[in-house]
Amino acid sequence: MAIALTVGVLVAGGVFMMLRRGMVRVVIGFMFLNHGVNLIILAAGGADRRGEALGGSPDPATTADPLPQAFVLTAIVISFAVTIYLLVLAVTGDADDDTDLELTGREMETPTFIEDAGGSTALPADELGPRAVRRTGSHSSRRRRPPGGRP
């Protein structure tokens, strides 16, 4: 029964943190969630047998089921990998790791029209960032913006 309650506490804490603001808190929320799920995996092997699966021929009546332990090892390592990546995402934002950004999807726009000087091969879409731009005529002042940016 204690395992089930621990799982409940960890999952509840994890989900609560996950729904808060700020990327680091979301990451720690996911860490708690992963702890909870790892405990579920181990519980699935039968928590009444708790002997260590070591030595020549461990007695199946008292030794813990080794298969879920292998699953948990894999799950821990995978969630560790994703957690580090999420942490990196926390610090590659614009100002801080705040997640309540009100973006209009227009930030992905190509700010200025890119004219590749010589070559005919155009540059990829996200390449069209701050490259030096050769202005072609008085151009951007006439840009038509639909009113009220936020749809």
Partner: peptide
Amino acid sequence: HRGRGRLMQV
């Protein structure tokens, strides 16, 4: 490309 990732991508 190096240094050209957009905020929307993040």
